Lab assay of single mutants.
Amino acid sequence: MSIQHFRVALIPFFAAFCLPVFAHPETLVKVKDAEDQLGARVGYIELDLNSGKILESFRPEERFPMMSTFKVLLCGAVLSRVDAGQEQLGRRIHYSQNDLVKYSPVTEKHLTDGMTVRELCSAAITMSDNTAANLLLTTIGGPKELTAFLHNMGDHVTRLDRWEPELNEAIPNDERDTTMPAAMATTLRKLLTGELLTLASRQQLIDWMEADKVAGPLLRSALPAGWFIADKSGASERGSRGIIAALGPDGKPSRIVVIYTTGSQATMDERNRQIAEIGASLIKHW
């Protein structure tokens, strides 16, 4: 058993032996400061991975655009179909130039040979490839079927209504393609630790998130040596930015963190910096 498999397999085991986890309101002070700095709403939640207890939250039940963070949920739905014998990670999917949409750094290189379902999930999560996400959405029946999958998990909040890139429109008060921090954190925890997916599929999902290559300026920039993080970021119109993550010290995840912001006029660099500073406060007061 690899170190990674050891880590995921023991998450339920550690729940019975973990020390009490204490919240630190200092992080919420930073979240509120980020709102002031960005001139935008910020949603935040910090969840204990083992118990599911909410440690801190700010606007946990307000809607925010999901942006590309939905791609983790999408690959969770794909893995659920794999577990049920309805899909194979090794199945190759062929597509054409007409299928390519904006920001497809991986799929645009494989027009001649296509990509496997496994490769598409990797591209969608680690590189946020939009065509990969659309191709995967097609395999499960489209955005409405992803919403149905989430409903069956008990998440009646999170919804996907459109495809890439239209889902990134982020119109104020538009509930399409949105979630709430509390709903996203709970759903992510179920995917990573619950019985919905097999152990192998849970491991695969967290491996893809751990290999994320496009979230460096966010929480990863504040991470001390030896800490673990598996994450997925997102960005969209109207100053929207977000990240969902499982992270913790000693090389294993122990908390879920979800951060969303929307409605800012700030630059992408400034949005990144504010999220990184929230992460730094979280780690300092861990």
Rank of each mutant, 00 (worst) to 15 (best):
M1I: 08
S2D: 10
H5G: 09
F6T: 08
I11T: 11
F13W: 15
F14Y: 14
C18V: 12
L19W: 15
H24L: 07
P25A: 10
P25V: 10
T27A: 04
E35G: 03
D36V: 13
D36E: 15
D36A: 14
Q37T: 15
A40H: 04
R41F: 06
G43Y: 00
G43I: 01
Y44F: 10
D48N: 06
L49S: 04
G52I: 02
K53P: 00
I54G: 03
I54N: 05
E56L: 06
E56D: 09
R63G: 02
M66L: 10
F70C: 05
L73C: 07
V82T: 08
V82H: 07
D83N: 04
D83K: 01
D83F: 00
A84E: 15
G85Q: 10
G85H: 11
Q86P: 04
E87L: 09
R91V: 03
I93H: 03
H94N: 12
Y95C: 01
Q97R: 14
P105S: 06
P105Q: 06
E108D: 11
L111P: 07
D113H: 15
G114A: 14
T116S: 11
T116Q: 08
V117R: 00
S122C: 12
A124V: 04
T126K: 07
D129N: 00
N130T: 00
A133P: 10
A133C: 03
L136P: 01
L137D: 05
T138Q: 14
T138D: 14
T138L: 12
I140L: 13
G142S: 04
E145V: 10
E145A: 13
A148I: 12
A148F: 11
M153Q: 08
H156A: 11
L160S: 09
E164V: 04
P165A: 03
E166K: 07
N173K: 10
N173T: 11
E175C: 10
E175M: 11
D177Q: 00
T178H: 02
T179I: 03
P181N: 00
P181H: 01
A183V: 10
A183H: 09
M184I: 10
R189N: 08
R189C: 13
K190N: 13
L191I: 09
E195K: 13
L197H: 04
Q204T: 13
I206C: 11
W208Y: 05
W208M: 03
K213Y: 09
K213T: 09
K213V: 11
V214I: 12
A215S: 15
A215Q: 04
P217L: 08
L219T: 01
R220N: 02
R220S: 02
A222H: 13
P224V: 02
P224N: 04
P224E: 04
I229M: 06
D231R: 03
K232M: 02
S233Y: 02
G234L: 00
A235C: 04
G239P: 01
R241Q: 03
G242P: 00
G242R: 02
G242W: 00
I243M: 05
I244S: 01
A245R: 02
A246Q: 03
A246N: 04
A246D: 01
D250Q: 14
K252Q: 12
P253L: 07
S254K: 11
V257C: 07
I259S: 01
I259R: 00
T262Y: 09
T262S: 12
S264K: 07
S264R: 06
A266C: 12
A266G: 09
T267M: 08
M268V: 08
M268K: 05
I275S: 02
A280R: 15
A280S: 12
S281R: 09
S281V: 14
I283K: 03
K284G: 08
K284Q: 15
K284R: 15
